[in-house]
Design a protein around this nucleic acid. Sequence first.
DNA 1: AACTTGTCAATTTTT
DNA 2: TTGACAAGTT
Length: 694
Amino acid sequence: MNMSLSRPESCIDGLNDKQQEAVLHQNGPLLVLAGAGSGKTRVITHRIAHLIALGTAPKDILAVTFTNKAAREMRERLRHMIGDKAKKVTLSTFHAFGLKFLKTERRRKDRHGNTSQSATFAIFDTGDQLACLKEIAKTISFGKPLKMPAILARISDFKNHFLMPDDIESTGDPYHDAALVFYEKYIEQLQAYNAYDFDDLVCAPVHMMRADPEVKQRWQKKYEYIMVDEYQDTNTAQMELLKLLSDNPARPKQNIVVVGDDDQSIYSWRGAEVKHILRFPQSFANAQTIALVKNYRSMGRILAAANAVIKKNKTRHGKSLEASRGDGPAIKVVKAPDHEAEVTWTVNHIRSFLDRGKMAGDIAVLYRSNRLARDLENELRASGIEYNLIGGTAFFERKEVKDVLAYLKLIVNPKDDLSLRRIINVPSRQIGATRIQKLAKLASDWRISMFASLGRLDEDNCEDSALLASGVAFHDLISDLQDQLDNLPADANPAHFAKTVVEASGLLDNISGRAETLKEAEFRKMNIEAFLRGMERYCEKATDLGLTGYLERMALDTRADETDVNAMRKITLSTLHGAKGLEFPIVVMIGMEEGILPHDRSLMPHQDDLPANEDGGIDEERRLCYVGITRAKDELALTYALTRPIRGRLQPRTISRFLQDIPAEITEKIDLSDEPDIEDVATMLASLKLSLAD
DNA sequence: AACTTGTCAATTTTT
DNA sequence: TTGACAAGTT
């Protein structure tokens, strides 16, 4: 992206020495420490192309990323370099790889007569997990009400460290001990639901390989070369998976190349551990290290600021980005009297670039927490500047869309009690919480799913006539749809079936019935239609995907597939996390204050509802700041306010410590408290006019 | 079962 | 200040 390649067929053309070294690296583990903007994706793709040019079969190469977006982009770049051969490379996210692994193994077992596990199963996202935990919470009682996300975080932690309930001891920590109780039940529940959660997609393959040498060897033989992107974001389970896959006893060395930047590790709260990239040389014997520090993205002063900020972190490999462009303009450090002045300045700043002919797509405003975007959004809308908001609630999180998905999921996997619970009363069938509980009781007595229980209801086992009637009707509805699905021609677009489901279920009528306003009803219907359209398009492109396949993809790739053709016409608003991997000529980071960046919660030493954080929070906040700064190519402005309403209360604020670390020589300080704002000027002018008139 | 009122808490969100 | 959610009411 930074340098254009003159001859696409060449694998090392246009690469610097270090990049070439990484691309040409032969066998054995290699850690490529790739600083921000140093061309890391370029190294991976060129290396793959190089290996293939040397005679490696594309299918013998595995490249793993964290996001679907990264995987797609990488494959696209590869396609430009080597054409159709790019399709044969296994290039996917950890989770998609895990899914493929599990399906392969389960199908295999099926073929060998072991039909205890079918190859179709549900994938639980975070919402499903929480719903599941809430169900469990009803069956046990603790002293105080517990936060399910906190329990979930700990369960996830257990899983990713391959700890089974029996391995874990009570520590006296209320959340740890509660999580332990939940964990055991949670595992049972998922099994009963025929579901895997996101963590399982990575952990289960590891378990299977450990348990069965035949499985292990088969997968170890599969890939000659393994490459990993964003290695700083790996958790323990992912690293273990990589170790197993790369450790082919038939080969003298582990051919694994990992690329990442310890300074950009900002997902520890999701289980990523920086120590994996810091200790890579210890984890993989005879590992080499190559550092890419030449930065092709940013102007010198921006890099100087980034380096100055990150330098204060102790536990890191220790590298400093080198500039390859000019110094660039000074970094603007803006002191605003209050948050409104901050926002006004930001919008004026953006305006001034737009007026000078800059493309809106070249401009981004970044912030630590979504809350900070709100005032900005209002101001931008008032100024008629269009913006693109990264993050926020995803399309697939919308209630009505989730309802449709729940219908589809239940049809595909009738054991999915959670989906059933979600929709059995949508539209209303007179089956509320009480009757759902009744049904759940029957199901657990009979040791079958709730859906199967519905099929077994009769006058003898169910005295509740309303439940019996509408329960059976619901069962008929779903079974009928199941039959329709089974009898669908193989080449039918699953989206058409989904449309049938929407119609048969009465979901649309339900919306008109209960929405508060007409406008809201329209909005929700539109969402469902948009969902169906999106599904249709998606399935057209990926033929022979099938409904099950589509649901799996959606579970793992939740991006609202808004391939925004207008993206370039809009400025970008994003959290610092959301901006990782992106770059913009012009960047403004707002809310550069103590308590926001670094965030208050990272400053508090210990919280009972959060798992302990190894590297003490503040380091990660610093990395977050570093990530933000290094997004900027040409111009960077950092703003803070002296006063800001927090939770309704106006509070005095102080400048972020990170901002203090940037040397004064490269900054230009702008103090807005000195300058009267527009209204003041208008008032002044008005009074001046009056006095002149006199 | 659906609606209302009160209480508590408050980052970040690749899959 | 907003929001989610649980408990209480109709």
